[in-house]
Structures are given as structure tokens and as C-alpha cells.
Amino acid sequence: MPLAKRIIPCLDVDNGRVVKGVKFVEIRDAGDPVENARRYNLEGADELTFLDITASSDGRETMVHVVEAVAREVFIPLTVGGGIREVADIRRLLNAGADKVSINTAAVFNPEFVQQASSKFGSQCIVVAVDAKRTSHDGSPGRWEIFTHGGRKSTGIDAIEWACKMDRYGAGEILLTSMDRDGTKIGFDNELTRRVSEAVRVPVIASGGVGTLQHLADGVLKGKADAVLAASIFHFGEFSISEAKKYMASCNIEVRL
């Protein structure tokens, strides 16, 4: 199958600065999103995701400038997520040079927003971020629910049903994060990923829990993910994107080398 599985580094941006990228030796200003984007592009990243974690609305305007600056230099797909609530938010980011936007909380509180957004801009640029947490006990059949507010509030919504609904509502892609695994470095929740990936028509990006290169490969091999997203293993210089790709290729996974 010649379509390559994608590796997507994720950058958290606060007030126009990357907040996790601090350990690159060759880069003087590790907090500059453009420098980070350029570096990941050179290493062979297949796409880039920027997550705007800025709380203030002034800061959000800064994100637009970040996207503009990155889009002038880096010619791979760019996704921006964080705080997207209105059609106007999407339009502003796409005009700045983003190729896709990732909608999370707004989709949960107003699913029609996803329909509205995809009919307006096309499904290809609407990613729905699904934050799921396992609610079933060990040994019983898996059940995951959608959580909001950084994983603190349960909505009671079944994650797999929700992903299917978002597919029907026009999501072009699902960014699936296991809230149980996020930040743990023990690997993706591959059972969750596989269940969602087999249930929806659209591509699924696995996220949350990567600590080793084997975890990335497992996301594809066991989780049936179409793309794998990771933050800290790339930011802290533990592995480069090219190392990750070589490793995945050695596991017989089709990648863009």
C-alpha cells in the first residue's frame, strides 16, 4: 500500500512561543515556532500541528501571525487547534495559511458547528479532536467516554459513537487522544485507536502516550492509525523525525523517507 502513514509533531504555542521546545542544541531560539517548524520540515515531518494554549483573546491574534510566518516558509500541511468556536475563527486561520483546523470543545457543546464548518470550508480542513478516557473496568469490554476541560469533565458520551457521528457530520479526520495515556510515555491506547479507526470512514490520528519509537509503530500496527502524533519525544531531542521514520520503515510500515 503506497499511501504513507504520517508522523505529525505537535507544538504547543502560548502567546506566540513554543512552550515545550527547549532542548534543541542547534537552535538558538527554541521557542520560535518558525524555527521549530523549519527544523521539523527538514527532518521530514509529514504535517505540523500547532495547539494554541493561549488563554487571552489578544494571544489568539498572535497565533494568526505565527501561522502566517510558518506558512510562508514551510510547505507541508499545517493544522491549528485550540479555542476554535466560530466560523470566523476558522476563516481567520485558513486565510493566514493554515490548511486544517482542529475543533474540540466546540464540537461537543455544539455538534452542528462541525456540519456548518465542513459545509462552508470543506471536510478536508476540518479535524475533530476527540479526547477519550476509558470508563470500563479491567477485564470488562472496553468503553471510553468523551471528556472536556482537559480531561476533568465527563460528558457521558461514548467515544466510538461520537467519532462516528463526527464523521457523519463532515469531519475530514479524527484526532484521537487518550486522556489516560497523555503525558505518560507508556504508549497509545491502541485498543481505543483500533476501535475508532475501524468504525469511521475517515483517517484517524493517534495521540497521547508516546515514549518510544516502538509506540509510534504500535499505533499503526496495533491501533490501525493512519497517522501518529507526538510532542515530547520530538521536542526534547530524544528522537528526530527521521529516526522515527526509519524505525517505522524497519517495521514494514510505509513512510515518506
Partner: peptide, 8 residues
Amino acid sequence: KVPHMGWN
């Protein structure tokens, strides 16, 4: 998956 999305 449909859309056909990614590097081919």
C-alpha cells in the same frame, strides 16, 4: 480511508 489523505 476516504478521503485519500496523505503522502502517496
